[in-house]
Design a protein around this nucleic acid. Structure first.
Lengths: 115, 115
DNA sequence: TCTAACTACTACGTCAGACATAGTAAATAA
DNA sequence: TTATTTACTATGTCTGACGTAGTAGTTAGA
């Protein structure tokens, strides 16, 4: 299970990564995250939609109303050029963070004995 | 540069990892993090000491006063058995998070063209 | 001896992001 | 008409990382 504290700061990156593969909408993204994580991480609706709002406000994504012939109309999101640039930066930051964490944790021998 | 939002949730893990290698104190840990990250991450003093307080409160570390012959006396921290167990869990969570992030980001071809 | 620099902290307050809780709303199936 | 699935919105909480500021002991140098 992945806790909210450790995923914090990566939600936006996950969303942008998914939108970089094509326009999508809330429910679909939600499902994609759950499925692609094998259930290890489920992004809450409030987290998801507030992230959308934040990203749109910053100009990293744009939205438009879909015209489905069936079902409630959805709001689709699309990544913008600044959004792709931001994603690139975030991916670089992710790589740095990963390298840092690996440096601090790989080396450890966590022995069981003594306090 | 690693931002505070992406490091959030990993500070405790970093500290415990370092303490798992041997008892230490604030300044030394602070220096170790700065140096071992090549300056990419500098944990602020307030962050460091409040993390110590939090971890001690939860029983994951214990403290004792050092008796140095020179310099201001320091507070040393040592990892406890529950602390080692907690560290193991956090390291597992880190591996899961890393796998998740890699799954979401590795696949992406971030092309530069179009919005 | 005065000051600066280094070491080793503490207090207080801010802020943002993830989430809990709860409700709204449209369409379809039974 | 009721339940179910989809598709959201509003409001508030909580925590952790950090900004700002100050305290305090020790040592080195002028």
């Amino acid at each position: 299970m992945i806790g909210s504290d450790v995923i914090r700061g990566y939600c936006d990156t996950i969303l942008l990564s998914l939108l970089a593969q094509g326009d999508s909408y809330g429910y679909e993204i939600s499902r994609a995250i759950r499925e692609r994580s094998g259930g290890a991480y489920v992004m809450k609706e409030t987290t998801l939609y507030s992230a959308f709002a934040r990203l749109e406000k910053r100009g990293f994504i744009a939205s438009y109303q879909g015209r489905e012939s069936r079902g409630r109309p959805r709001t689709y999101y699309t990544i913008t050029a600044p959004g792709r640039e931001y994603l690139r930066e975030k991916l670089e930051e992710w790589r740095e963070t990963r390298a840092l964490m690996d440096r601090f944790t790989n080396t450890e021998e966590i022995s069981k004995e003594e306090s």
